[in-house]
Write a protein that binds this DNA or RNA. Structure first.
Lengths: 346, 346
DNA sequence: AGGCATTATGTAAACCTTTACATTTCAGGC
DNA sequence: GCCTGAAATGTAAAGGTTTACATAATGCCT
């Protein structure tokens, strides 16, 4: 038995484009063209090249290609916190589009640490990434400020945004979604409606808060407004839930800016022997998988997460091709009524 | 006002090591050494180089470095399904160690699709990744078989494993964890204990199943064994839960191979008006964040996820350095008793 | 058949680092 | 002051691909 895999050099060396060229009896340029721009190569040569590639078992060296082309075919998806299940389907949507176009996705978990975010941004300048989809506003603005206005800075935002920096954005209308939730609660007879927001200053939460206030005002209930602040996580939902509910004048409904917090509130209510939806209605936000399996099933606002991911990646690809990009794409959310909301009891 | 950033070439070109060399008055080799092996450069030169770097704003071109060094400083973490929150903390542990060592992590979501897995494996041969941490056994074995036995094939497994391929593995003792759970249920007086496994044939599930059977046997309860199969997700827990419970001779306890399934079972029990833990005890597996916030709080088995991630990455780094690696690292799990389990009622 | 416009191919430089090898510098011992 | 060995630095090749430019081949028209 002998080794049939001849590369022409050291027996264990990996075949390069040169080996292919030799096997196909043409120059490396032709091989490269046959791969990158097949239409620029005659049918017969293309065929010969393809055979040669198969014969020597060639695979392009990507580092060399990246070096030459000054690109990386890598997109960073910057998340505030990878453990939040809200993001997984967005990522999934991004990957579909990205892979299609020959791009990879590098998931960047900031863990609420500015240094991490900075490190991921640095990948842009070192050619290790071609663009960023930003899914958090919890990063130092200085990272972006410098490039603000530059029309094709390869950065798009999804879901989250900055109030004072205008970047291409793919998101739902948070104000409207919030109005819809509050309207619904009012229609059930609720008057004392509290809201549990995400981190203070977060623009999407401010939008939702605005929707909350506007709708209360519209119904003449603004003096009943009651706002608590959480961090999107279970624990803060539980703690703030206890604070809101352990109180004689407690609200009859709580609108939460995340499902995890809503589930925390449900636990707080149980602990205080407050029945849901009998004595308290709870609305969440995001419609994560879990929201169908908690007790009671959660009324919540659903975002088209997969589509958001797809559109975001699509926009970024446009940007990378130097094309103009829609500054603001608004996708529609909708209220999913389940069992955590009901008519107010008196 | 004039531009102070002079690169010596096109005004917008990014500074290279040549620019640094010129600014520092030395050769590119010296600059390179000052960065890679500072001890091989005299103190004064090193200082001069560092200043030059700061002055011209140099950052190494990673693609060029990767090309020359034939490495990518990238590790792939291959997951069955990114939306499973079980993995996020493992990833987190991996990242801590990886970043420390100058590596990046590329999260590969297989989505139960062999083609995806194959694509990620291909990154190895094209030098786009240096190694893989495999967190799923749901991939074509052919991808690994070829390299089986090769002592420093840059692949380690975490949590999951193959029954017939021996690879470095970092995991808990699933058999023992399962025994512990069942022992505990027996100690509460349960006799009819069912188990809801993950996908059939999954080695870790087989281990857990073996633990289940062994423990039942030890207590003379093996003829009461009752096994249902799920897929780790909420829905399958709910469906199989209904099937197991909607039955005159239903079990008084169910041991589930994931927390999500356990929560699905809780929902099934509610729907059938079976109280937990009054009429039914439920045990989960993994101790995901949610398990403290469902109703009732879930008794479950906790894996040291962060540590598993760290050790896995550590082992992989050893492998990449050509060092010998412990074939099997067993970390300890423990049973967390919460409110979903109780003494059997009669 | 000759000329012209395409089309196909080849040559070689460029992308930016790293590193083997060669050369220079330096310190210290005599 | 000279020699030796070690330390510091420089030179230039190598890594694999892409692509601008040059050249060769082809097809078409008259």
């Amino acid at each position: 038995m002998f080794n049939t895999q001849v590369t022409g050099k050291h027996p264990h060396s990996v075949p390069t484009i040169k080996d292919v060229a030799k096997a196909a009896g043409c120059s490396t340029a032709t091989v490269s063209r046959a791969l990158a721009t097949p239409e620029k190569v005659s049918d017969t040569t293309r065929e010969r090249v393809n055979q040669a590639i198969a014969q020597v078992g060639y695979a392009p060296n990507i580092a060399a290609r990246n070096l030459r082309r000054a690109e990386s075919k890598t997109i960073v998806a910057l998340l505030p916190d990878i453990s939040n299940p809200f993001f997984s389907e967005i990522i999934s949507g991004m990957e579909d589009v990205a892979h299609q176009a020959g791009y990879q996705i590098l998931i960047g978990d900031c863990e609420h640490d500015p240094a991490r975010a900075e490190a991921y941004f640095r990948l842009l300048s070192t050619n290790q990434a071609d663009g960023i989809v930003l899914l958090t506003s919890e990063i130092p603005k200085a990272l972006i400020k410098q490039a603000d206005g530059q029309a094709d800075f390869p950065l798009v935002m999804a879901c989250e945004f900055f109030s004072d920096i205008d970047l291409p954005l793919i998101a739902i209308d948070n104000h409207q979604a919030s109005c819809q939730a509050i309207d619904y609660l009012v229609s059930l007879g609720h008057q004392r409606i509290a809201t549990l927001t995400g981190p203070a200053g977060n623009p999407i939460c401010l939008e939702r808060l605005r929707g909350y206030r506007d709708t209360l005002s519209a119904h003449g209930l603004i003096d009943q407004a009651c706002v608590a602040e959480g961090d999107f996580g279970f624990r803060s939902g539980f703690q703030q839930g206890l604070a809101l509910l352990d109180n004689a004048q407690r609200p009859t409904a709580i609108f939460c800016h995340s499902d995890e917090m809503a589930i925390g509130v449900l636990k707080a209510a149980r602990q205080l022997n407050i029945t849901v939806p009998g004595q308290l209605s709870v609305v969440g936000f995001d419609n994560i998988g879990l929201s169908e399996y908690c007790e009671p099933e959660l009324t919540t606002i659903s975002q088209p997460r997969n589509e958001i991911g797809q559109q975001a990646m699509q926009s970024l690809l446009h940007l990378l091709r130097g094309e103009r990009v829609i500054r603001r794409q608004t996708l529609s959310s909708h209220l999913i009524v389940r069992k955590s909301t009901g008519r107010v009891s008196d």
